[in-house]
Amino acid sequence: MNTPAAEPTGLRIGTAPDSWGVWFPDDPAQVPWQRFLDEVVQAGYEWIELGPYGYLPTDPAQLADELGSRGLKLSAGTVFTGFHKGEDEWKRAWDQALNVAGLASQLGAEHLVVIPDLWRSDATSEQLEARTLTDAQWGKLGAGHDRLGKALFEEFGMRQQFHSHADSHVGTTREVLRFLDETDPRYTNLCLDTGHFAYYGGDNLKLIAERPDRIGYLHLKQVDPTLLFDVLKNDQPFAEAVADGIMIEPPHGIPDLAPIIEAVAGIDPSIFAIVEQDMYGCGVDAPFPIAQRTREHIFSCTHLARIS
Rank of each mutant, 00 (worst) to 15 (best):
Q96R: 07
P116N: 05
R131L: 12
G139M: 07
Q96M: 05
A209G: 11
P116F: 04
R147C: 06
W119E: 05
L190K: 05
N204S: 15
G195M: 01
E154W: 07
F153S: 12
H163A: 02
R159K: 14
W138A: 02
D88M: 14
L207K: 01
L112P: 10
G144N: 03
A166D: 02
G171D: 07
G171A: 14
T183V: 06
A136D: 11
A123S: 10
K206S: 15
L112T: 03
P185A: 09
E87M: 13
G139V: 07
T194W: 03
Q161H: 11
Y200G: 09
E182D: 13
V170R: 00
R120C: 11
H84F: 15
C191N: 06
E89W: 14
T124H: 10
G139Q: 13
L107Q: 02
E129I: 03
H111W: 14
A104G: 06
K206A: 15
E87G: 08
V113T: 07
S168K: 02
E175L: 02
L98F: 10
E155D: 13
D95R: 11
K140P: 00
T183P: 02
A101Y: 04
T134M: 04
T188C: 08
I115F: 15
K206C: 11
I115C: 15
F153E: 12
V170D: 03
G142E: 03
W90K: 12
P116K: 02
H163R: 04
V170A: 01
L141R: 09
A166Y: 03
P185D: 07
R131N: 12
V114S: 05
S168P: 09
A109S: 05
N204P: 00
K150E: 12
S121G: 11
G108C: 08
N204D: 15
T124G: 09
Y187V: 08
A143G: 12
A209R: 13
D146C: 02
Q127A: 13
D146N: 10
L112A: 06
A209K: 13
H196P: 01
H111N: 12
F162P: 01
S121Q: 07
S125F: 11
R178E: 01
L112W: 03
F153W: 15
A109V: 06
T194P: 04
L190W: 01
E89V: 06
E89K: 09
T132F: 14
D181M: 05
A151G: 10
S125G: 01
E182R: 15
W94P: 10
S121P: 00
L207H: 03
Q137F: 08
L177H: 04
N189K: 14
G202K: 06
N99D: 14
E129M: 08
T124D: 09
A93I: 10
R178I: 08
S168E: 07
L192V: 03
A143V: 09
V176H: 03
R178P: 02
Q106G: 04
L205V: 10
E89A: 09
V113E: 04
A198P: 04
G157F: 00
K91P: 00
Q96I: 05
Q96P: 00
E155W: 03
G144V: 03
N99V: 06
H169E: 00
G149E: 01
R120M: 10
H163S: 02
A198W: 05
F156T: 03
P185N: 07
D117Y: 14
